[in-house]
Computed example of a mutant assay.
Amino acid sequence: MNRLSFIFFLFASVGFAQENSTNSSIKKQIEDYNVSFAIAFTKGNQDDLAKAYTDQTLFMPEHSRQRVGRKAIRDFYKQWLKQAKVTSYQKTILELQDFGNYVLEIGTFKEDLNLNEQKAFSYIGKYSVLWKKPSKKSVPPTIAAEIWGSSSYFDDKNIPDINDIEIPKTKKYMPTDKLTLEVKERNKAIKEMVQNRQGAEHAKMFMPDAMYLTYYTPILSGEKEITDYFTAHEKPGTLHIEQISIETSNIIYAQKAIVEFGFYSVDWRDGENSGNVKGKSINVWKKGSNGELLLFRQIVNHD
């Protein structure tokens, strides 16, 4: 077992009690960043938009492929602002989960933008940012990962068309330590449930106090909302999943959770209609009462 796995099990042994409230200084730094980001976005200041990202940041925009690092992220915003004028932008923080050396921010956003020669559009959705805590309080936290998605279906012609041609394909995470293998086994089980249309069983992979942020849907909180969603979304019928892959691109062993970065591909058929859907996710795993890994927070969007 590697050192990171040992640290995770050490914290797991105390039962993963609910995290204490996030340090007030970190909370203030995140709130200040959100305000400064909104100002930079509406003014089109690309340098300020990229200041919290690092060369290792995993960036998961909706309707675009995963990007890694400040340079690729800056290029994303350059393309976005070249095509659209952002007239207003606001984030509302719903929760901050303290994982010891990382903080997970979850909230909602509203972005009013005007695409070139198109009507104004309000892009409304939810987001999650994984912040890495600094070693010194005087240093601001950095963004380890970010993902967002709309809270309802929308025509992607209303948002900029981002060119991903130079973005390399996401690679599988290959380590074979015990925790990674356990995560992969859980994903294998999820894959089979999705393919067999076992929505109610899929919902049992979540903790009772879980949150699920999926595509074109408001935030789902708690056992009932998540169970109702999967029971309806993955029910037997005319829709068939012909092929599905669920892979891991990276894992962070935080002190109080496993944060997995995933990507998926689904080939589906419904009568004469068929297609392929690709996407990505941030999956926060914790140990349940029976010792098995369960999803505590999951955030998903389409490429």
Rank of each mutant, 00 (worst) to 15 (best):
M60A: 00
V68H: 04
N2I: 10
D209W: 07
F109N: 01
K287I: 14
L293S: 06
H233Q: 15
E192K: 10
D209A: 14
T54P: 10
N273H: 01
V284P: 11
M205D: 15
F154M: 01
A145Q: 10
K85M: 05
F41G: 03
E234Q: 08
Q83F: 01
I30Y: 06
I190A: 07
P61G: 01
S265Y: 03
D177L: 06
N101G: 14
E182G: 10
V284Q: 07
S274T: 11
S151F: 03
V194G: 12
T217Q: 13
I167S: 05
F9I: 04
S135A: 13
K136Q: 13
I244G: 03
Y102T: 12
F230E: 08
D98A: 15
V194W: 13
E62D: 12
L4Q: 05
P168L: 01
L239N: 03
R269D: 01
L49V: 05
K204L: 15
S245M: 05
L4M: 11
K133L: 14
V14S: 15
K188G: 04
W285D: 03
K137N: 14
F261D: 04
V14F: 13
A72P: 13
L294T: 08
A203I: 13
K91V: 10
I167N: 03
F121T: 03
D48Y: 05
I143S: 02
D267R: 08
H233P: 08
L130N: 03
F261W: 07
